[in-house]
Computed example of a mutant assay.
Amino acid sequence: MKILVTGGARSGKSRHAEGLLSGADAVTYVAPGRPADGTDPDWDARVAEHRARRPSHWRTVETSDISAAVAGSTAPVLVDCLSTWLVAVLDEARLWDAAAASVQAEVEARLDVLCSTLEDVADVVLVTNEVGLGVVPAHRSGVLFRDLLGTVNQRVAARCDEVHLVIAGRVLTL
């Protein structure tokens, strides 16, 4: 089964996603965000919290190439999260200040590969953030990220069997 788990920051979405696979003998946990590296104590603490919660028999893959990690796994996959993947895509291709058409083309190309890969996978849970429900970002980078993540979420949700919205630790199946 393919499930997209979405919600706001600190809503409980990662914990819910982990619980969906807690009974699996093996899980490939794909962390597409930047690893803890000592430059941001808050980020490092968040990464440490996620690592500490994972069962020891889960295999962790830290990569922005979600498609390769998902395609190469024989176990159920948990991707946490598409938001950090999008940041990695924008960082790696140095797209934050690029023309909108260039940014859209690059993200769509990578999203095409991801969505195609998802078609061939049996069990995957993907986590993402909902960022379009609040304040309108004041800067171009915030608007760019919000709009692109909305597109990512829609396209991935279309490939999933279920979408779970997590708010305040409560789960709604959409």
Rank of each mutant, 00 (worst) to 15 (best):
Met1Thr: 15
Thr6Glu: 03
Ala9Phe: 01
Ser14Ala: 01
Arg15Ala: 09
Glu18Phe: 00
Gly19Ala: 08
Gly19Asn: 04
Leu20Asp: 03
Tyr29Thr: 03
Ala31Lys: 05
Gly33Gln: 01
Pro35Gln: 12
Ala36Asn: 10
Asp37Tyr: 08
Thr39Phe: 04
Trp43Ala: 09
Asp44Thr: 13
Arg51Glu: 14
Arg53Cys: 00
Arg59Val: 03
Thr63Tyr: 08
Thr63Lys: 04
Ile66Ala: 06
Ala68Gly: 15
Ala69Ser: 11
Leu78Glu: 01
Leu82Thr: 15
Arg94Cys: 13
Asp97His: 14
Ala99Gln: 14
Ala100Leu: 13
Ala105Asn: 11
Glu108Val: 14
Leu111His: 09
Leu111Gly: 13
Asp112Ile: 08
Asp112His: 12
Leu114Ser: 14
Glu119Pro: 02
Asp123Gly: 12
Val127Pro: 00
Val127Asn: 00
Val127Glu: 02
Thr128Val: 09
Gly134Cys: 04
Gly134Thr: 06
Gly134Phe: 09
Val136Asp: 04
Pro137Gln: 06
Ala138Asn: 13
His139Leu: 08
Arg140Ile: 09
Arg146Leu: 12
Asn153Thr: 11
Asp161Ser: 15
Glu162Met: 09
Val163Ile: 11
His164Arg: 10
His164Tyr: 10
His164Leu: 10
Val166Lys: 02
Ile167Arg: 12
Val171Gln: 07
